[in-house]
Simulated assay, not measured.
Amino acid sequence: MEYLFETESDENGGVPGNFEEVLRDVEWALMRVSNMGSPSRSTLPSWPPVHVLTAVGSRSLRDDDPAKVNAARQLIDAYYWRSLFTNRHERQANDRLHEDLEELSSVLKGEREVGTMRIFSDQHHPLYPSEWLAESVGWIGKSRIGKALVAGVLASKTTPVDWITGEFLRATHIRQLEQERNLDRHHVFPKKVLLEAGVPEREINNGLNGVVLDRRTNRQFWKYPPHEYVANVTRKKGITEGELRERIEGHLVPYEEMISVTGKTHVRYSKFRLARARLLMETIRQLAQPPQ
């Protein structure tokens, strides 16, 4: 799949001779990112690292030693998360992708150490700090990093569920909701509430204020402060507060900061974003940790 990085066309018009093998590698790469929280095109944060995964290909996991296969998968997955949560590909993307491919291939062949890969260098490409995410990340339906935050939630060990239906938001269910046009991107602190409190729209649409839910669930919440809609759901839907809390926290949402009524709305909202950023980055650091 290295032809993805070539600049000159070959005599076959750019179509590789091993086309069937290429298709298998593409399928494998798409399955990997689907399992890592991006089950559809609209939920995929970024295509460039998928190209690298495709180029490395399922061939990297063809080994009789389970330990080697597991280490290879962990390395490839960690590379993907570092691609999403660092500035590695914000500049000179094509050159850096080619460099990533060569370095990954060398590590998988045992020719170099993981620590020598530039993308895993905290000096050159540290993970985004929580404080920056709390102030600057864009919305989960548009921004690359916003979408990456959702992927981190869906790929976490919590296996999030819809807050009212209780259905697991796995890849198949996300795709089903999208096909039915029933996948909504919910503002945890509703836009109406924050606008009335004078919060700028840029802050309202911070990705840390977003979770993916069934549209029918989202419609229960759109105009009430969080502490009110939580009370409404427990009263009207037969869901205990403990159960609802568990479902909400499964999206890496800090429940206490979410339902707090102490202080002004914009102050509570700022504290919520920072608390959620820290929760999410704990998970991202684990996902982005390569094998030692």
Rank of each mutant, 00 (worst) to 15 (best):
S42V: 11
L84A: 06
I284A: 02
F5D: 03
M117L: 12
S83W: 08
V137F: 05
V193H: 00
L287Q: 03
K147I: 04
E2L: 14
F85S: 09
G210T: 03
G166V: 05
K191L: 15
E135G: 07
A67I: 15
Y79Q: 09
H251I: 08
L183N: 03
R215H: 09
Y128Q: 08
V56M: 09
E2W: 07
V150H: 05
G57K: 07
T172I: 10
D184I: 05
R219S: 14
P190C: 13
Y269T: 01
I239A: 02
A197R: 02
G198Y: 01
L4D: 03
E246W: 11
D25F: 07
L127I: 08
L213G: 02
V261D: 05
T234Q: 08
V267L: 07
P225H: 01
R202P: 07
V188P: 00
P48F: 01
V153R: 05
A72Y: 00
Q292L: 11
L101R: 06
L104T: 04
L154S: 02
T172V: 12
G57R: 05
K191T: 14
I119N: 00
K237Y: 10
T262Q: 15
A148T: 04
I145R: 15
M281F: 02
I259F: 00
E249D: 10
G146P: 04
N12K: 05
N18V: 06
L44H: 00
T240L: 10
M281D: 01
P16W: 11
S156E: 06
